[in-house]
Amino acid sequence: MLVFWDQKLVLLATPKTGSTSLANALESLAAVAIQRPPVLKHTTVHRYRRFVGPYLQAASQGEWTVVALMREPRDWLNSWYRFRSREDQTDPTKSTRGMSFDDFVRAWCQDPRPAFADVGAQEKFLRPRQGEGVDRLFRYAEIDTFVEFLEDRLGCEITLPRINVSPPGETWLSPETEALLHRVAAADFALYETLKHPDQA
């Protein structure tokens, strides 16, 4: 999570949406940059609105804009699958090495999920249980639009480094698993479809 005091802007770090690259590029401009532990770095909108937001508003006597990125749900899960297949994954219960993407997605669709597939869901990260959510939500696939927004708000040119990139891996899903995913992740797909393309803004 990055807090830009003068601009009254907060960037929530949705997991697997380039948050490490964004933090690397923007940390020097932020008044507050929380990069660890993961539970604080990836503060959800619900926790922000309940705990962090009220403090910032009281301290600044102003209104804040909360922004975040969202990845296409299938692609988001594939990024997690590839990330957990890395050789430096030290916890064997969270490793996806030797596993197909199809098996990973089927495991994610279970309730409860096994440890290797227990990665949460973007919709739960980005939607509050009640009250306000994210003010501006951008598609990860159109990150250039997001960077342009940040450049305008922060008044500087931004170049994102390639950091924490997941290794290559398979992307195939059976039609049955694809259908299962769309049922279980219906809220994620619905939220993603509400996001406007640049030419619709």
Rank of each mutant, 00 (worst) to 15 (best):
E27P: 09
S28I: 07
S28V: 11
S28P: 04
S28E: 12
A30N: 06
A31T: 15
Q35V: 14
P37Q: 03
P38M: 03
P38G: 06
K41N: 07
T43P: 05
R47Q: 12
R47W: 15
Y48V: 04
V52T: 14
V52A: 14
G53K: 06
G53H: 10
G53A: 07
Y55W: 12
Q57E: 15
Q61C: 12
Q61M: 12
Q61N: 14
E63L: 10
E63W: 10
E63S: 13
V66F: 04
V66P: 06
E72C: 09
L77K: 02
N78V: 11
N78R: 15
N78C: 15
W80K: 05
Y81F: 14
R84M: 11
S85G: 13
R86Y: 06
D88G: 08
Q89M: 13
T90K: 15
T90C: 10
D91T: 03
D91R: 09
D91E: 11
P92F: 01
T93D: 14
T93F: 04
S95W: 02
S95E: 03
G98E: 02
F101D: 02
D103Y: 00
F104A: 07
V105G: 02
W108D: 03
C109T: 07
Q110H: 10
Q110I: 09
P112E: 07
R113M: 09
A117S: 09
V119L: 01
Q122M: 12
K124F: 09
F125N: 00
L126Q: 04
L126I: 04
R127A: 11
P128M: 05
Q130F: 12
E132N: 11
E132D: 15
D135K: 04
R136N: 11
F138E: 06
